[in-house]
Amino acid sequence: MTLPDTSPTLSLRDATRTRSNILLAAQRLFAEKGYTTTGVREVAAAAGVNSTLIRRYFVSKEGLFRAAVEEFLRVDVFIEGNREDFGKRAVKLLIYGEGVTSALAMMMLATADTGARELCSELMHRHITVPLAQWLGGGAGAMARASQINMLWFGYMGARQVLPLTGLEGDALDATRDWLAETIQAIVDRP
C-alpha cells in the first residue's frame, strides 16, 4: 500500500494552488458583480473550497479584494523599456489588458462601498501613480503628470471594458489608440 505524499513541499504546492484558485474566482466575481454584491461564500463555491480557507489566506473579504486588485496593479511592465516608446508600449499593454480580468472593473464596481473605494484609491496611488511619478523624474510636476497618464489609462479601459463605447471599432478604434499613444507620450516628454 502506498501512502500519500504529505511532505511540506506537497502541502505548500496545494496551499499555493488553493490560494490561486480563490484569487482567480474572486477576481472574476468582483469584476462581474462588484465588491458589495459578491460574498465570501460565493467566492469559495466558485473556487471549490470551504469559505474558512478564504479567511485563512486573506483574513477578510477586504483582504481578498485587496489581493485581487493588487495582483493587477503593476506599473513595472509599462516603465520597462525605452522612454521614447512609452506611449506606444502603454497602448499595447492596454490592448492586451482588454482580454483579461479587469482590475478597473473590480475597482469601478467597488465604488458603492466607501471602504473599498478608499482602498482602491490608496492602491492606485501606491502601486501606479507614485512609481510612475518617480520614473518620470520626481519633482513638483511629476505627480500631476503621472495622474494624467493614469486618468487616460482609466478612461480607455473603462470605455473598452466596463461601459463600452459604441463607435469605437475598426479605423475609429485604431485612430483612438494612436491618439492615446501620442497623448501619453506627450505627457512623458513634457519637462
Rank of each mutant, 00 (worst) to 15 (best):
residue 1 M to H: 05
residue 3 L to H: 10
residue 4 P to N: 04
residue 6 T to Q: 14
residue 6 T to H: 14
residue 8 P to R: 05
residue 13 R to A: 14
residue 13 R to H: 10
residue 14 D to H: 06
residue 14 D to A: 09
residue 14 D to C: 04
residue 16 T to A: 14
residue 29 L to V: 03
residue 31 A to Y: 02
residue 31 A to N: 01
residue 31 A to T: 02
residue 32 E to D: 11
residue 35 Y to A: 08
residue 35 Y to P: 02
residue 38 T to S: 11
residue 40 V to F: 08
residue 43 V to F: 14
residue 45 A to P: 06
residue 46 A to E: 15
residue 46 A to P: 15
residue 47 A to I: 14
residue 48 G to L: 10
residue 49 V to L: 14
residue 49 V to Y: 13
residue 49 V to E: 15
residue 51 S to H: 15
residue 53 L to F: 15
residue 54 I to V: 15
residue 55 R to D: 07
residue 55 R to G: 12
residue 56 R to I: 14
residue 60 S to H: 04
residue 61 K to V: 01
residue 61 K to T: 01
residue 66 R to W: 04
residue 67 A to P: 04
residue 69 V to H: 04
residue 76 D to E: 14
residue 84 E to W: 03
residue 84 E to P: 00
residue 89 R to L: 06
residue 89 R to I: 05
residue 90 A to P: 00
residue 93 L to D: 02
residue 95 I to G: 00
residue 96 Y to E: 05
residue 96 Y to I: 05
residue 99 G to F: 01
residue 103 A to H: 01
residue 105 A to L: 04
residue 114 T to A: 07
residue 124 M to R: 03
residue 125 H to Y: 04
residue 127 H to T: 03
residue 127 H to M: 07
residue 129 T to D: 12
residue 137 G to K: 13
residue 138 G to Y: 08
residue 142 A to Y: 00
residue 142 A to D: 00
residue 144 A to M: 11
residue 145 R to V: 12
residue 147 S to H: 08
residue 148 Q to V: 05
residue 150 N to K: 07
residue 153 W to V: 08
residue 154 F to L: 15
residue 154 F to Q: 15
residue 156 Y to N: 02
residue 157 M to V: 03
residue 160 R to G: 00
residue 161 Q to W: 01
residue 165 L to A: 14
residue 165 L to K: 12
residue 168 L to C: 05
residue 169 E to R: 07
residue 173 L to W: 03
residue 176 T to A: 14
residue 177 R to Q: 15
residue 179 W to S: 13
